[in-house]
Nucleic acid binder design. Structure first.
Length: 306
DNA sequence: AAGACGGGGCA
DNA sequence: TGCCCAGTCTT
C-alpha cells in the first residue's frame, strides 16, 4: 500500500484490510473483486491485484511459507527493488540498502548532486551511498533500522521544501549544509497531460445504478457506468444499442472532470431511461473506479433536488 | 531507458 | 494546478 502512497493516506486502509483479510490464507481465498473493493480509493489498483496474486503464490505454491531473502521476495508479483529490500532488511536483518523517494532526496543533498529527481543516475548514486553506509555499520547495528532512519530523516527533516537543516543530525557531513539543500534534487521534467473526452450513460433508481466492469488493460476489474468516447447524443444511442444495451439515452445531466497521472478526463453524463430495475446494482457491492465514484455523485444530487 | 499506472492529497 | 509520495511492470 505504501508504494507511491503517503503513510497517512494508507493507515486507515491498512487497518481495515487486515481486519477483512487477517492472514495470507484469507487474502488468497478472497476473490479479486473483494480485494479490489477493499482497495477502492487508494489508487494504483494493480498493486491490489498483485498483492492478491502474491498471497496465492505464498499460500498455494509455497504452502504458506513466506520468502526469507531479498532475492526470493523479489520473485513475488508486486515486490520490486524497494519493497524486497525493505522487507529483507527490516524483517530479516539482511544487509541491503533501501532506496525510496526520501532516500534519493537525502543522498542528493548529502552529496550535493545536481541531478533531477527522476534521474536514474540519482537512484544509482543513492544505491551506492546506502551500500557504503551499511558497510560501516557495526555487527550489532541493524540494517533495517538504518534504512528506516534514512527514510525517516527524509520524511521529517530533510523534506522536499523548507528542510529543517538546523535540526539535522548529519548536518556536519552534508555537502548542502550551506543552504543549497532546499534546491536539491533538481525538479523533474514534467510530462504533458493527455486529454480524453468520454460520455457516460447513467441509469439509477433508489440508490442503485447500472454498472459494469471496465474493459481493456487499464481499469480491468473496476466498475463504473457504461461509457463511450465522446459523441453526439444520437450516436451514443446507436452505440449503446449496438453494444446490446437496454434503455434509451436521455438528456445530458452533468459533467465530471477527473485528473489522474498524466491524464485529464472530461466526462459528460447522459441519463439512461427504461433500464429494468433488476439490472441495477448497489454501488457499495462492487469495486468502483475513481472516475466511477465521481460520476455516481451527480445523479444522486439530481434525485434529491428533484 | 522510458512510459504507463487512466491515484490521491496538500499547498 | 503542480508536486510528491516508504514504486513496479511492461515494452
Amino acid at each position: 500500500m505504501l508504494q507511491q502512497t503517503r503513510v497517512d493516506a494508507v493507515v486507515p486502509y491498512y487497518e481495515r484490510f487486515l481486519r477483512i483479510f487477517p492472514d495470507v490464507y484469507e487474502l488468497a481465498a478472497a476473490s479479486e473483486e473483494e480485494v479490489l473493493q477493499m482497495w477502492a480509493g487508494l489508487g494504483y489498483y494493480r498493486r491490489a491485484k498483485m498483492l492478491h496474486q502474491a498471497a496465492m503464490v505464498v499460500s498455494e505454491r509455497r504452502q504458506g511459507a513466506f520468502p526469507r531473502t531479498r532475492k526470493e521476495w523479489k520473485e513475488l508479483p508486486g515486490i520490486g527493488e524497494y519493497t524486497s529490500a525493505a522487507i529483507a532488511s527490516i524483517a530479516y536483518g539482511e544487509a541491503v540498502g533501501v532506496v525510496d523517494g526520501n532516500v534519493k532526496r537525502v543522498v542528493a543533498r548529502v552529496k550535493a548532486l545536481k541531478l533531477r529527481a527522476n534521474d536514474r543516475a540519482l537512484h544509482q548514486a543513492a544505491d551506492v551511498w546506502m551500500e557504503e553506509r551499511l558497510g560501516e555499520l557495526k555487527p550489532e547495528e541493524s540494517p533495517g533500522d538504518f534504512n528506516q532512519a534514512v527514510m525517516e530523516l527524509g520524511a521529517t527533516l530533510c523534506t522536499p521544501k523548507n528542510p529543517s537543516c538546523a535540526e539535522c543530525p548529519i548536518l556536519e557531513t552534508c555537502a548542502s549544509s550551506d543552504g543549497l539543500a532546499g534546491d536539491l534534487p533538481l525538479p523533474a521534467k514534467r510530462k504533458e497531460m493527455k486529454k480524453y473526452h468520454l460520455s457516460f450513460l447513467v441509469a439509477h433508481s433508489g440508490g442503485r445504478f447500472l454498472l459494469r466492469p471496465c474493459e481493456g488493460n487499464w481499469n480491468k476489474g473496476l466498475w463504473e457506468p457504461p461509457s463511450f468516447p465522446e459523441t453526439t447524443e444520437d450516436e451514443l444511442q446507436e452505440k449503446w444499442k449496438k453494444a446490446g444495451g437496454e434503455g434509451t439515452v436521455g438528456s445530458a445531466i452533468g459533467e465530471v472532470r477527473h485528473t489522474i497521472t498524466h491524464h485529464q478526463i472530461r466526462a459528460t453524463l447522459f441519463q439512461l431511461k427504461g433500464v429494468p430495475k433488476s439490472a441495477l446494482r448497489d454501488p457499495s457491492e462492487v469495486p468502483l473506479s475513481g472516475l466511477g465514484r465521481k460520476v455516481l455523485k451527480i445523479p444522486k444530487s439530481f434525485t434529491v433536488t428533484g
